[in-house]
């Protein structure tokens, strides 16, 4: 599991001053993980990229009144991405005719169409609530602790633990262990440039 970057506290003052350099550093540190989170929520790379960009742009506009330390800043960004994802999900529900597939030139994974496609996993995630999906992504993919997830989701730790336990039980029940495919997928991730 990965851990959150430790240097956000050094960046936060520059962010508050709306420094271009600070934003560039923040983007370098945070954008990839935010993109993974958004991708887990939306399962659509391009929409995930848009969600992340929107969060950074919103922060750039309002950073002058940002309060707190680096942890607050990180939580703010995850919350912003989460709500952008929720807006996107609602938009899709309202306009189901709009395309949701990844566009051909969307990015890295297009060279490897198998990567990221796990119908059984996607079907299992569909059985979870939005909050449970968020917790699963934040815990199992991004490696956040219960407290950190509680901060990001603006809830308490007990609720996070309870929700995570329910989600994991559900997923484990729905998913069958396919060690070979996991190993293959992990290998592909490691082989990425």
């Amino acid at each position: 599991m990965s851990t959150p970057p430790p240097d956000l506290d050094d960046i936060v003052d520059g962010i508050r001053e709306r420094s271009d350099e600070a934003f560039s550093d923040l983007h370098r540190v945070m954008a990839g993980r935010l993109l993974t989170y958004a991708n887990g929520m939306l399962r659509d790379r391009q929409a995930a990229e848009d969600s992340v960009q929107q969060a950074f742009v919103e922060l750039a506009r309002t950073a002058g009144s940002l309060r707190g330390d680096g942890t607050s800043l990180r939580s703010w960004l995850y919350r912003s991405v989460r709500f952008n994802c929720l807006d996107e999900v609602r938009r899709r529900k309202r306009h189901p005719e709009l395309p949701t597939e990844v566009l051909p030139d969307a990015g890295l994974l297009d060279d490897d169409p198998d990567l990221g496609l796990d119908p059984e996993l996607e079907a299992a995630l569909d059985e979870l609530s939005e909050q449970q999906r968020s917790i699963v992504m934040l815990k199992h993919v991004l490696g956040f602790s219960g407290d950190e997830i509680a901060s990001i989701l603006n809830t308490n730790r007990a609720a996070v633990y309870a929700s995570a336990a329910r989600a994991e039980r559900r997923l484990k029940k729905l998913l069958t262990p396919v060690k070979s495919s996991i190993g293959a997928a992990s290998q592909r991730v490691e082989d990425r440039p």
């Binding site: 983007h27 995930a48 990229e49 992340v52 950074f56 990567l115 991730v189």
Partner: peptide
């Protein structure tokens, strides 16, 4: 195993092209 499977499915990296575009927007 659950973490590995989820990570394999959804963990992605940002391309330089997207990164440049986003920095420009910021």
């Amino acid at each position: 195993q659950l973490s590995e499977r989820l990570g394999a499915a959804f963990e992605i990296e940002m391309t330089d092209e997207v990164r440049t575009r986003q920095l420009s927007a910021i």
